[in-house]
Amino acid sequence: MLLIKCPWCGERDETEFSYGGEAAIKRPLKPKDLNDKDWADYLFMRKNTRGLFLEQWNHSVGCRQWFLVERNTVTYEIISTKRMNSDALNSEDSQ
């Protein structure tokens, strides 16, 4: 059972959160300009990283905020949690 540090509410039990999958998947600004394959990539393809993974979680029972979690998918160790719009997301964005 994870102990997740909500960037606002502090450490809370995993049961207070819901999982939002891989973070930093940018919605294309002009979806209609994408061909079927590129759109399908955006829609369906997700990394299945073994090791460090940037994902989004929602403190659904608490402050309802979505935030970023850097987690090791092997050990379940949470390396850091960050608010959206923080540097971590921006650096992902620029990739």
Binding site: G20, R27, N58, W66
Partner: peptide, 13 residues
């Protein structure tokens, strides 16, 4: 509600 919040907070903050 949580789906709307997700779009708002993560895609269009």
């Amino acid at each position: 509600m949580s789906w709307l919040e997700q779009w708002l907070q993560t895609e269009w903050p």
